[in-house]
């Protein structure tokens, strides 16, 4: 019923001869949590920049909140929250001041920014660090402050570029929890990531991007069903032997990927296949049976792993 908040038709971004984004089309609905998954250099960040109206597209149609980012940058950005890939907090200001000045950039009143800053310090679990300088904060705290900052203007849509890259597992989980709350409140989330677990945790729908083009689209579960098997058996024989062993077990499972460090066997029953392999006398040094993930989807689609 409602208009999509983002409508991208065949958008292209070229830097000189280099094509960063090569004709991507997608739509994002209000309240949806939408992920762009792909390796570094796939064109995710460039796509985000075009949505955030900080990069002008070379061609194609793009509508964000019903406006054209090429001409209505300030108006679009007034409704967006943007969490860039690298923390660009204002080192010359204290924690709370960072929020205050950012709110003022949106033309909010002094009273409104003060109230909002205190709420968001609470939300980001940084109330006790309000007067601290930015520099000594931990990576996770800086990220939370960056997210709090992006929420100063009560954005309709939050854009997150690699939100948890470089954080330790605990900090990631705190962050995911905060983002999940926003999602529950109905904020539209658009995120890029090269972590499949992050995409699975946070996205309702994903597009898999590689070399500037869309490879697949769907919910994490759909993508896994469509492009991978139920289970994956990973066996390792040591880097020299993987290839030789692979030849004699090539008939096992629905499909195999032979990586330099391991063999992945896609199957509906990993334990059974592992038994078959060992019965043939190929005892792996290590083995693992796991559920299929988006990593496997990506490998299937591109022949490459996400994190290289």
């Amino acid at each position: 019923m409602s208009e999509p908040v983002i409508r991208a038709e065949n958008i292209v971004k070229k830097y000189g001869d280099f094509v960063a984004v090569d004709g991507i089309s997608f739509e994002v609905q209000r309240g949806e949590s939408f992920g762009l998954l792909g390796p570094n250099g796939a064109g995710k960040s460039t796509t985000m920049k075009m949505i955030a109206a900080v990069s002008t597209r070379t061609s194609g149609n793009l509508e964000v909140l019903g406006m054209d980012p090429n001409t209505d940058g300030p108006a679009i950005r007034s409704q967006l929250g943007v969490v860039p890939q690298e923390d660009n907090l204002d080192q010359e200001l204290r924690v709370r001041e960072n929020l205050i000045t950012y709110g003022r950039f949106f033309g909010m009143s002094h009273a409104a920014v003060a109230k909002r800053a205190d709420e968001l310090l609470e939300f980001a679990q940084l109330t006790d660090r309000a007067k601290s300088k930015v520099e000594p904060l931990s990576g996770g705290m800086k990220r939370r402050l960056t997210i709090a900052r992006s929420l100063m203007n009560d954005p309709q849509m939050l854009l997150l570029d690699e939100p948890t890259t470089g954080l330790d597992p605990q900090a990631r989980h705190i962050l995911w929890d905060r983002l999940f709350r926003l999602k529950e409140q109905g904020t539209t989330l658009v995120l890029t990531t090269h972590y499949m677990d992050e995409a699975e945790q946070l996205s309702d729908r994903i597009i898999v991007v590689d070399k500037g083009a869309i490879m697949a689209e769907g919910s994490p579960a759909q993508l896994i069903r469509q492009y991978s098997s139920k289970e994956v058996l990973e066996v390792r024989y040591g880097s020299d032997k993987n290839k030789t062993v692979a030849k004699s077990i090539a008939d096992i499972g629905e499909r195999q990927e032979i990586l330099p460090d391991r063999i992945l066997i896609y199957s509906d029953n990993g334990e059974r296949d592992l038994a078959v392999i060992t019965n043939r006398g190929h005892h792996p040094t290590t083995s693992l049976v796991r559920r299929s993930s988006l990593e496997d989807v990506f490998l299937r689609l591109t022949g490459r792993t996400l994190v290289e």
Binding site: T71, A75, S78, D90, T101, R104, F105, F106, N153
Partner: peptide, 26 residues
């Protein structure tokens, strides 16, 4: 849902939000 930010009018083809004051204040 309602953004607290005042959506600025289009000025100079998206070049200005009409809020240089906030930059000075910072």
């Amino acid at each position: 849902r309602v953004s607290a930010a005042i959506a600025p009018k289009r000025r100079f083809g998206g070049m200005s939000g009409g809020n240089a004051r906030a930059v000075i204040e910072r």
